[in-house]
């Protein structure tokens, strides 16, 4: 099969490829529409196990336990989920466990739902408060290098990192009444 040039692949595929290249085998998530394609790619792969969570902070402990047992994982969540994780983030900090999250942003670029704004706007500040280093992708061209950098940072330095996927990249959801 002819290899498809990277320029023709969607950004979700780039994230998937970097996760595979870097030896990730576990994907935990509370779903977000912005992560739906990536979750489908991971579920279709035999190399990755996908764990659906009831709340995002479960993913923090779960991935820390997996790392203690020798597996690399990533947490996928919406920006609202970052708020749920705050106290749990003490665990990777205090034990210097590498922790990586990919956050689909809401409450910013072209947001339609006012309720998304407080946690969306608070997400970078909450991450900073809990010593999680943020990496950001605003455009498709940024995604591959940003996930590569965030994952390398987390696992090479045993610290917490988050890749924020901008609402500009994902596309602001618009709702219309029937």
């Amino acid at each position: 099969m002819r290899p498809v040039p990277a320029s023709e692949l969607p950004w979700q595929r780039e994230i998937f490829d970097v996760l595979r290249e870097q030896g990730f085998s576990l994907v935990a998530h509370v779903p977000d529409a912005g992560h739906a394609t990536l979750i489908e790619l991971c579920e279709a792969s035999e190399a990755l196990d996908v764990v659906g969570l009831t709340t995002e902070e479960e993913g923090v402990g779960l991935l820390c336990g997996a790392w203690a047992g020798g597996r690399k994982g990533v947490l996928l969540m919406q920006s609202s989920g970052v708020g749920n994780c705050v106290n749990a983030l003490a665990l990777p900090i205090i034990c210097r466990i590498p922790f990586l999250a990919i956050v689909a942003m809401r409450g910013e670029w072209g947001e339609f739902i006012p309720w998304q704004v407080p946690m969306g706007q608070g997400t970078p500040k909450v991450l900073e408060a809990m010593d999680v280093s943020s990496f950001r992708a605003d455009d498709e061209a940024d995604v591959g290098t940003a996930i590569h950098a965030a994952a390398q940072f987390a696992f090479n330095t045993r610290r917490s990192a988050a890749l924020l996927l901008s609402q500009k990249l994902i596309g602001a959801k618009q709702f219309e009444e029937a």
Binding site: L26, D49, L62, G70, L91
Partner: peptide, 14 residues
């Protein structure tokens, strides 16, 4: 609240 998730992650890895 994190001991349960941690134990589950460990069990999945080992």
């Amino acid at each position: 609240g994190q001991a349960g998730p941690f134990a589950l992650g460990l069990a999945l890895a080992q």
